[in-house]
Design a protein around this nucleic acid. Sequence first.
DNA 1: TAATGTACCCATACATCATAGGGTACATTA
DNA 2: TAATGTACCCTATGATGTATGGGTACATTA
Lengths: 129, 129
Amino acid sequence: MEIQIDIDDKVPLFTQVMEQIKQAVSSGDLAAGSPLPAIRQLASDLGINNKTVAKAYRLLERDNVIQTKGYRGTFIHPDAIENCTTDLNIWVTTELTKSITAFRHANVTDSEIRIAFADVMNTNETKGN
Amino acid sequence: MEIQIDIDDKVPLFTQVMEQIKQAVSSGDLAAGSPLPAIRQLASDLGINNKTVAKAYRLLERDNVIQTKGYRGTFIHPDAIENCTTDLNIWVTTELTKSITAFRHANVTDSEIRIAFADVMNTNETKGN
DNA sequence: TAATGTACCCATACATCATAGGGTACATTA
DNA sequence: TAATGTACCCTATGATGTATGGGTACATTA
């Protein structure tokens, strides 16, 4: 398990970590059940912050690509192969595109769309992230 | 027809202009067909920029609250009373709320939603505004 | 000539947010 | 005791978008 990080890349660090783990799962380098490095360990190896690796792990767990087992560590999810190809963001983008296209067709200003979006995001707050 | 502008209000100036004209229509102070001040005139009276008043007029015309007749000036739309109560933004907000609620329920991060939103807004560009 | 709405260029001040980091602390369990 | 994931505090930087302004110009028509 080796991860290469490019600090100068425009791609966010946590995204680079996510993509490389997913890619390792897809290529078979990481089989279901395989242990992953501890958060602090991987962050130290890559020379980046704990929180950055933790963020990548958190997102990967949400996507059911990895599993965290508390003090025992983190492992590849049993269904990782299927789940690391499905992209939640594609669905989000598709849905938003449908709505925004309709708004623009009704001559709603981009500014107005952005204002309304910001309103919705801020009034119904969510805690983390 | 008098419009009061509060520079220190957080509400944008063009919004204040829009709201007061709509309110004057609703209260009957401005009847259908009544002429509105010229853009440069009103801007001068209020001590604000031409573009700010022009923006308010542009949006009001889109909402069919006013009508511009080229060199002849701007007038209250025949159906202004009905149209100044219907708010396009309510529809936009409702639609976005539905989508965003679904995203959050699927554990999509607010950051991810914002990124996807910005992508959609920027890839399919529109010209003005 | 003068006034109308409209369009384009430029710029600035301000707010919001994503990313990333530094630090500390917690409960759990070998 | 040591390591696990996790949660919270605070900070800084860069990107982006809004609102507003200044200026110039256009075709149209009284």
